[in-house]
Design a protein around this nucleic acid. Structure first.
Lengths: 341, 341
DNA sequence: TTGTAGGCGTTATCAT
DNA sequence: ATGATAACGCCTACAA
């Protein structure tokens, strides 16, 4: 009745004190046993028994305060609905979980403000590190990343001077692979449905496409721009078809490609007979479509895994020099461009 | 030069002590000002200035130890690649973010062991609450949920006696809606591609399908079972077509439906002319397919939002009686069953 | 309004 | 091997 708390936590749950008292040892001994370091056979037995009896579970927060780490890794991504990020997330989660940590997922909506706010919040140290895959990289991103007290790994391009670990691919070359493949298949009017030109991937893919068509002596006038979503891809394809009649379309990602496929089929065009289609990112979506869509793989799983490993390495040793990993693009040919079923 | 730490944290970052010292006040005053409670105009000014000067950011862990809450909400889901969970996650994240908290996402792979392990780990109190959507519910789930010191909300069915907040829908009725619609459209050989029968949704949908076909005086022999994935749907449809010739197929979710669509198209059947198709969950996938797939909406976003709200309410007041919310299914008709484009 | 002091639950240090 | 004690960084009575 109203007796003062003795050893239990504020909410009545057992603490080390509870266990120690019950086992008749000091909290130091109890803690040691609970952490598996030291203790005589008898002490170990009594502490274990006491802990089991009261249902002791260590408080993760208190432990974090002491150890200066939370065991949490954050993954910030603009659109969790895009399968490419799901693939990355899975790969990251696997590595993170194996290291005994947990993954925190942030949706940023691609807003620069919310991404930098997120990066700044890292200063609160509620996570041990963050993997971020920004589609726009601004000065405030860079500033926030370099100022962060906890390690940050970027999946994507980053100015060379920025001393932050990063994993990149080469979607410029990737776009070229798609064009080369289509031209090799005899296509002569190759169009391109891109994402926004104020994004890093948008710019890279635009450059890659233009360089490739130029290489083949073709003009680069069949370009439409939208955002990186299904609806935008469909709309862009409709605009394209309204003004021209391409015999092949390269899409800046698979969502756009699926939207374009929809528009093509609706307008009665056959894929790949009338129009060949190539997407990018090689997500599940490309395989789930009918016909299945050829796609430029940018190694999402590999990039995710590498990013997670870079991050864990840096958490283990902050003194490491900044590292960069590069994952080469490769083309996966499927039915939409005349490949297999 | 090896001078002892004064007021900074172990890693050299400023703490309240740093700010207080610089402002020439006590840490209590500094803390008060930093939290916006009390302080004379002059004190407020000096503390603010000092905090800004040293770039003070409060340590989230220390604050959590004090406040007994982490500001984290967990969402545990078996397959983060399924768009239905992405939809739920988005809805949950919106509510959670609005409350100033952050979302932690766990992938359980649907393993009972890993789900209960997760629930047990809640005892560590590293999150303020958890939303879980298990497709199997075992005694150990129930036990772990009721024993959890932090609130748990379940999205899905739960035995009535279990005193845990939950949000459910009625996929049994949902399956019936699909059958009714197909029969109304003149289909007489309606098949069903279901997920595993040892899962809660698998059982409910099976019951719903059987009851509905019986209601229409039809037999329920065109049933194939796989798991809730694309590949399984495709394989199940292939098995089905190998042994029979249905004129309509109900699928237990959209992933299965997309797989079935693939199999149908590959085998040269037209959708909906030869075979009508209805999925379930009404995910983006249904809209992205061609033809677009009719689907039974189970209100994923609504369920996610409700679950998040139930959880926040309970965090605010642990004394609340257990609550249940029910979201009714509804049919969204699209081209795959003879509806619009 | 302000400062002192104690506690949140854990681990680490340092005598014993 | 063990126990008393001091952090970890923050908040908050309580007293001044």
């Amino acid at each position: 009745m109203g007796r003062k708390r003795l050893h239990d936590a504020a909410d009545g749950r057992p603490t080390v004190h509870t266990v120690a008292a019950r086992a008749g040892v000091s909290i130091a001994s109890a803690s040691r046993v609970l952490n598996g370091v030291g203790g005589s056979a008898e002490t170990v037995r009594r502490v274990r028994e006491a802990a089991a009896a009261v249902g002791y579970v260590p408080n993760a927060i208190a432990r974090s305060l002491q150890s200066q780490r939370t065991g949490l890794i954050a993954f910030a991504v603009e659109d969790i609905g895009n399968p490419v990020y799901v693939a990355m997330m899975r790969a990251i989660e696997a590595v993170v979980a194996e290291s005994g940590r947990q993954l925190l997922v942030h949706a940023t909506s691609g807003q620069v403000a919310s991404e930098t706010a997120l990066l700044r919040r890292l200063a609160h140290r509620y996570v041990d590190g963050m993997i971020i895959s920004p589609i726009r990289v601004t000065d405030s991103h860079v500033e926030a990343m370099t100022a962060s007290p906890v390690p940050v790994v970027v999946i994507g391009q980053l100015p060379d001077a920025v001393p932050v670990d990063n994993v990149r691919t080469d979607s410029r070359t990737g776009a070229g692979l798609a064009v080369d493949h289509l031209v090799a298949g005899g296509r002569t009017r190759v169009a391109f449905l891109n994402g926004p030109l104020d994004t890093v991937p948008g710019v890279a893919r635009d450059a890659g496409f233009r360089a490739a068509v130029a290489r083949h002596g073709m003009s680069a006038d069949l370009i439409e721009v939208g955002d990186f979503q299904y609806a935008a891809g469909r709309a862009a394809a409709e605009r394209l078809l309204a003004r021209s009649r391409p015999d092949a379309i390269v899409c800046a990602n698979d969502l756009i490609a699926v939207g374009a496929l929809h528009a093509l089929l609706v307008s009665g065009l056959r894929v790949p007979e009338d129009v060949a289609l190539v997407g990018m990112d090689d997500t599940e979506l490309a395989q789930m479509s009918y016909p299945q869509i050829s796609s430029v793989s940018l190694g999402s799983e590999i990039r995710g895994r590498l990013a997670a490993q870079l991050l864990l390495d840096r958490i283990a040793d902050a003194g490491l020099p900044p590292r960069r990993e590069q994952v080469p693009p490769s083309l996966v040919i499927r039915a939409s461009s005349g490949g297999g079923a």
